[in-house]
Design a binder for these strands. Structure first.
Length: 551
RNA sequence: GUGCCCGUAGCUCAAUGGAUAGAGCAUCAGCCUUCUAAGCUGAGGGUUACAGGUUCGAGUCCUGUCGGGCAUACCA
């Protein structure tokens, strides 16, 4: 609907001789007496037009040239708002679009021809996925879905490292547990991975090999089997949540030179050096961030000769630019918050357009069981597992709860609420609306021979009651909501929006008889129901939750 | 100490610098001989942590204070 107003507003500004590159805001007032839509351009442009806002607004409303049957009234209100009142029939005619466009409703081609990469999860294979990781995973998946609706060619990538120090510790952890199985008395180090899964991997090795590995100092087999088991467990968990990746990028490849070229890591060092941002002291190689006003330089290559994580991080992002992505979204948890400014600074120094990189940081998750808060912790054996949560509340609830709060807010995951089968539980509330429509359609086909495949939406303009207009009006917001989610990298807006749609449908259903109405109205109300179902489906698809036909 | 996030109804959370700060839960009062009551309607509930500032207008932006979280490694 916002797209409808823009050209008319621009046209009026043009006639008034006002040129501006300021963004034109079109709002939905929360009070109906202020119309269906409003704009504040008179405030924004008053200064350059050398008029007071009310005066400018009055001038502008005389210049709007809306077609017949769309805007019925335009008025100046308060200190200078311009309010638009729409013809109810216009909502209904517009709602036909939803049926015509079907699953394309809400899509645009604004990202067509552009390549986007969304990086998410990116957990190293040192243990099963924790609940905290799940939030970022769902967030990333939804952002990727959103980008796809705009025509971007999206790559979903998982960045991992199976070669570093943590993997070494993992291998040693498995070996210690294995030696225990072999009957040796081991004092298991507190620095190592405590989780039960270590013992299970060791058990498998013991069953397969007996104690023949006990004498070897070689860690490779412990590492490889641990990695294989853990990675497949991670992927299985993600699959349960419909989180997928197109590409798994191994950090280790950044250490390797190929075709006579230095390794990507080396190239980053050399390029930064050429720009004068590399220092060598204390036996290490430093990224001289002090030159950028930071308090300390950052180590890129440790005195041991190994790169610190920052160097491959930078090199990794360079590969994203080299691979030709126009938009790069990184999703990670708040514990990595210190990591990205250095990466962005380095990219800028190397001459890349860092504004193409967007960061979505999600805050942590706590779970509440019976009113008791349990804080999640990582790198300890007691971290709560994502798999257990999915077992407990199901995939749909897990996904929806992860994104129904703003990513910047700490998430309080109420496990008991997620299991509840009533309107208190937002998952059920949304899905019930969909199932209710499906049930209605089955009945309509049986009792009055309604064929939904033939529904064109042509009868919709017959509807004019308040619940019907409100419903149609909210359906038309869907494309705007997608844009808003993308601008903020925040799928939460979609959850709230769908809740409103479901709420208005339930109200309509309560107040307007459908199958009992006269034939014309009946058809129109069935068509409206189909329209709602389409929007719910399109929204569910972005959020990655299922659309049950009956409950 | 420093950096980032958060502080809004009893609880969980909304509100691209816009008009009287909104939902849901919980509480209270109503609606099923009628298409799914897994639903709907209504009521009460607020000094937006605190103090200043910026402007036509501040929950939102700036400064400071208080409280909570995360990070402050030659770990990732």
């Amino acid at each position: 609907m916002r797209a409808f107003f823009l050209p008319f507003i621009q046209d009026a500004l043009h006639k008034a001789g006002i040129e501006t590159d300021k963004e034109i805001q079109i709002d939905k007032p929360n009070d109906k007496k202020f119309g269906d839509f409003s704009t504040n351009i008179a405030f924004l442009l008053a200064k350059e037009a050398r008029k007071n806002p009310r005066e400018l607004a009055t001038q502008l409303i005389a210049l709007f040239a809306f077609p017949e049957g769309t805007v019925t009234k335009t008025e100046v209100a308060g200190p200078g708002f311009i309010n638009f009142h729409l013809d109810p029939a216009f909502f209904m005619r517009s709602a036909q679009e939803v049926l015509t466009q079907g699953e394309k409703f809400g899509c645009t081609d604004s990202g067509k021809g552009q390549k986007a990469i969304v990086e998410y999860v990116s957990a190293n294979p040192t243990g099963p996925l924790t609940i905290g990781r799940g939030r970022g995973g769902v967030l990333g998946d939804c952002i990727a879905n959103l980008l796809e609706t705009q025509g971007y060619e999206v790559t979903r990538e998982y960045y991992f490292n199976d070669a570093g120090r943590q993997m070494q510790i993992l291998a040693e952890s498995v070996r210690f547990r294995y030696l225990e199985k072999c009957g040796q008395a081991i004092e298991f180090p507190t620095t190592h991975y405590q989780g039960d899964y270590i013992g299970e991997i060791a058990e498998t090795l013991f069953i397969e090999h007996g104690d023949e590995l006990a004498s070897t100092e070689e860690l490779a087999i412990f590492k490889e089997s641990a990695e294989a088991v853990i990675f497949s467990s991670i992927r299985r968990t993600l699959e349960r949540l419909s989180i997928t990746h197109d590409s798994f990028f191994n950090e280790h490849t950044l250490y390797q030179s190929r075709e006579g070229e230095p390794s990507p890591n080396r190239q980053v060092i050399d390029a930064l050096d050429a720009k004068g941002f590399i220092g060598n002291y204390d036996g290490a190689t430093w990224f001289m961030t002090t030159k950028l006003g930071q308090e300390k330089d950052k180590v890129l290559i440790k005195s041991s000769g190994d790169p610190s994580y920052r160097l491959p991080d930078i090199a990794y992002h360079v590969t994203k630019f080299e691979r030709g992505f126009d938009l790069m979204v990184n999703v990670f948890g708040a514990d990595h918050i210190d990591e990205y400014p250095d990466v962005l600074e380095a990219l800028k120094i190397l001459g890349y357009d860092a504004s193409k990189v967007k960061i979505a940081i999600n805050q942590f998750v706590t779970t509440t069981v019976g009113g008791q808060t349990v804080k999640m912790s990582t790198r300890k054996g007691n971290a709560d597992l994502l798999d257990d949560l999915i077992d407990d509340v199901g995939a749909d609830a897990t996904r929806l709860f992860f994104i129904m709060r703003g990513k910047d807010s700490h998430l309080n995951f109420d496990v008991e609420l997620a299991k509840k089968q009533s309107k208190d539980n937002p998952v059920f509330y949304l899905q019930y609306a969909h199932a209710r429509i499906c049930s209605l359609m089955r009945l309509a086909e049986k009792e009055v021979g309604f064929d939904e495949a033939l529904a064109s939406g042509e009868s919709l303009p017959l509807l004019d009651s308040e619940p019907e207009i409100d419903l149609a009006s909210s359906l038309l917001d869907f494309p705007d909501v997608i844009q808003s989610c993308l601008r903020l990298l925040e799928p939460q807006k979609m959850v709230e929006y769908l809740h409103t749609v479901a709420e208005r449908y339930h109200k309509f259903y309560q107040e307007c008889p459908i199958l009992k109405a006269d034939e014309n109205i009946r058809t129109a109300r069935l068509e409206l129901s189909l329209t709602v179902r389409q929007v719910l489906r399109n929204g569910f698809r972005i959020l990655g939750i299922s659309a049950p036909e009956s409950m």
